[in-house]
Design a protein around this nucleic acid. Structure first.
Lengths: 339, 339
DNA sequence: TAGTTAAATGACAGCGCTGTCAATCCATTT
DNA sequence: AAATGGATTGACAGCGCTGTCATTTAACTA
């Protein structure tokens, strides 16, 4: 029926306090003792009662995930990743949808944190990119982990996951170059997103590295939407000396670009290569399927959560930040240049 | 800072037990006493400690949302709706992603429920359509609310929300008919979904009502995906005497159908009308935007949660089930027949 | 008015865990 | 071999609330 810490203590022949130490990953427990307890936990399939723990302790074992990002696929991936780490570490997850554009968003978050005794927060864009959020959270002493786009670790002592959009964009651009493309259009996401900026830089760096002139006229300002992909592609395809490949800042844009191209009876990838970014379901729902950069959101979220929980537990990890680079995923929308 | 039940008891001059009675809306408390306590609660801005309440009590105040549906937009909407009702009623929400196709899915759910002391579960398709889930939940005495597709309330005493796909499909079909269409193709979702079946029936009923022959060859078996929409539309458009309108079983299919049609240089809606279903972001991300049936998922989820919590609190509501009919949302992908 | 009963209220234990601090262990050192 | 001191471990109280059951109060009845 219900397995309590007492049962585990009895079975393993130690006090409940020691069992508690084991479940909380505290340091001063002899390895042999720890093993015994772990075995008992396994055997009984014991799960600590979270309510009791948070009642008794002064610490909180609840973390919050604040989201707003309208990209549902991204949120679900993140949420699933966070959740799996929470389960592993016996933390609770509080989901907090909110509107990042609301004027008093920061105070809303703060009051939620106080209400629910939150120990830490997982921050994804746009929240992770708002300095004021990080500041205020530090101020009230709540830990947080940020998932950010960038190449170098920011100057901070809060944990973070850096998604290396630059390198990934470089790699995917190199892929196009290797296929013989030299006129490569670029449809960007909103410039307010760090990820957009990084991807543009990676794209430019790849061109430079291969001694290809970067035609500024092939870089279209867009946003992360299907519609923007349609419009961006239309602009690019109308140009004299039109590109033989299009790097879309994400898969949704790529899907739009694909749509627009097919409307003009351009065959993909024979007459035009299109690549996306993120490996979201969009990239698999089109025909042909889109070559993209696989951004393992669920893994990223899991790691981020692990870093956050480490920090909450005040265990100084080897690394406070991790870097993850999305990897090239070649599918059917990219091919060699044909004349 | 922290206000406990003790503070309220002292301020209002009663025992903590009486305060507890008031916060839990128990019956045998004199009105005058209740008022005094309420005033104190107000003054101190007291919020009961949920952890303590669930530790001490035999009752649980946590409900779970089990999801698997690969449609991220749907899940997020549902989740947000459930969450808003939970907050209102001081319930906690446990999110439980899982795989509905796993062999021991039911036992996994049961064990999660026991582990986390869940009082009730919100069930959406496919779980809400699995009789075994409802049976097992009843067996272990856990309340649940189901969100189902259908016209008539099932024979049960568990609460549910019936989404009247039939009427909505009828209405959207009637819209096409009113525009002059008589040859209307239909691309279905997977037949394992009740929603698909209901939508087909609604479509057929509308044809019949208007004395239009139902051409079985215009009904294409598909599934809920973009790709399926592409293929379905290709099949329909290849037919002699091809349809002048396509009813797609959901927006994703509609987006695919739109894509396929544009590939063939068919203009929408002049040469072909396309309608979707659900009012998901897909229907807004295309060009032209898709006429669809607005299924207010967040509202549905909120109502479902309210019904569930009522049931948990053993308050007999007037109605145990509610019926919601998605309403026609005319956009730009449907137009009058032109010759 | 006293007696009877139902309604209202309170005293108290205890939910399962963690914090505190004292007790014990064990590898050193002397 | 005894002393030392840091590393382990355990005893016990108590977190804020609810369930149980005893007690008090109010509301009738005869």
């Amino acid at each position: 029926m219900k397995v309590t810490i007492n049962d585990v203590a009895k079975l393993s022949g130690v006090s409940i306090k020691t069992v508690s130490r084991v479940t909380n990953n505290e340091v001063s427990v002899r390895q042999a003792t720890r093993d015994k307890v772990m075995a008992a936990i396994q055997e009984l399939n014991y799960q600590p009662n979270l309510a009791a723990r948070s009642l008794a302790g002064t610490k909180s074992y609840t973390i919050a995930y604040i989201y707003d990002n309208p990209n549902a696929y991204y949120i679900i991936d993140m949420q699933n990743g966070i959740l799996s780490e929470c389960r592993k570490q016996s933390f609770e997850l509080l989901i907090h949808p909110c509107n990042s554009k609301s004027a008093d968003i920061i105070e809303e978050i703060v009051s939620m944190i106080k209400q629910s005794r939150i120990a830490g927060v997982v921050l994804t864009p746009p929240f992770s990119e708002m300095p004021s959020v990080a500041e205020r959270l530090t101020e009230i002493g709540v830990k947080f982990v940020r998932i950010l786009s960038g190449r170098n670790v920011p100057d901070t002592d809060s944990p973070c996951i850096m998604v290396n959009d630059f390198d990934a964009a470089f790699e995917i651009s190199q892929h196009l170059i290797d296929l013989g493309h030299t006129d490569i259009g670029f449809i960007s996401g909103g410039k307010e997103h760090k990820s957009t900026l990084e991807r543009i830089e990676g794209y430019k760096a790849a061109l430079t590295k291969n001694s290809i002139d970067c035609r500024e006229d092939l870089i279209i300002d867009g946003e992360y939407s299907f519609e923007s992909g349609v419009k961006g592609a239309e602009q690019l395809l109308a140009k004299p000396n039109r590109p033989t490949a299009i790097f879309s800042c994400n898969d949704e844009i790529a899907a739009g670009a694909l749509f627009a191209s097919r409307l003009q009876n351009i065959t993909i990838p024979e007459q035009l290569s299109i690549v996306g970014f993120e490996n979201s379901p969009f990239s698999r729902q089109t025909w042909p399927k889109i070559t993209t950069a696989d951004q393992p959101n669920q893994t990223i979220a899991k790691h981020a959560t692990a870093l956050l929980i480490n920090d909450i537990r005040e265990q100084k990890p080897d690394e406070i930040c991790e870097q993850i680079t999305p990897s090239l995923l070649v599918r059917d929308s990219s091919g060699a240049v044909t004349n």
